[in-house]
Amino acid sequence: MKTGDMPALNLGQTLEWLRKELIEMRAQDQRLLLTLRQLQSALEELRADSAHWDDVRSGGGASPIRIRAGSEGRGCRPHSSGRLIQLLPDADSRRSSLP
């Protein structure tokens, strides 16, 4: 009779493990979605800044370098790709587990 009970026990343990994995995967998907939305927002910001500087360059007026240096001197923070890197999840957060 032990052999008849073992598959049911193994199946129950396997199903429980699978439920836990699916719950963790759902949570990871939510975190990745949040990160994707933050990256999208940061990219839109960078595109807007890029379009602004393209307009300034094509406008002919003062040098974009001088204008930018002036805005930085007034406490405006320049945008950089460093912010995008901060939004990327760590490689350690990826899961790879087996039963």
Rank of each mutant, 00 (worst) to 15 (best):
R68S: 11
L18Q: 10
E45A: 14
G82A: 15
S96R: 14
S41Y: 09
R37Q: 12
G75E: 01
I67W: 01
R31F: 00
H79A: 09
L84Y: 03
M6G: 00
L34V: 13
S93D: 12
K2I: 10
L84M: 14
L15W: 06
R19G: 02
A91R: 13
H79M: 15
G61S: 09
Q13K: 11
H52A: 08
P7E: 06
L11Q: 14
M1V: 04
L98R: 09
L98Y: 08
R68G: 10
A48M: 12
R94F: 07
D49S: 15
W17T: 14
L46I: 03
S97D: 05
E72C: 03
D92V: 05
L18C: 02
D55E: 05
D29S: 08
P78M: 01
L11T: 11
A27D: 13
I85L: 14
G73C: 08
L34M: 11
P7G: 02
L18I: 08
L18F: 03
R66L: 14
T35Y: 03
G82N: 11
A27Y: 07
R95H: 08
Q30P: 00
L15D: 01
Q38W: 00
P78S: 03
R19W: 05
P89W: 06
N10A: 03
S80P: 01
L43M: 13
K2F: 04
G82S: 07
E21R: 15
L11F: 06
M25Y: 04
S50V: 11
S93H: 06
R83P: 00
S96H: 13
I67P: 01
R94D: 04
A42K: 11
S58K: 14
L18Y: 03
L34G: 09
A69Q: 15
P7C: 03
E16W: 04
T14I: 11
G75S: 11
R47S: 15
G73D: 08
A48W: 03
S58A: 14
Q38E: 12
L33S: 14
P99T: 06
A69C: 05
G73H: 06
D90G: 08
H79V: 15
A48I: 12
L32T: 06
S93K: 12
P78Q: 02
L22I: 10
A91V: 07
E44K: 13
P78A: 05
D92E: 15
A8S: 07
G60H: 08
D55L: 12
L32V: 13
S50D: 13
D49L: 08
Q28T: 14
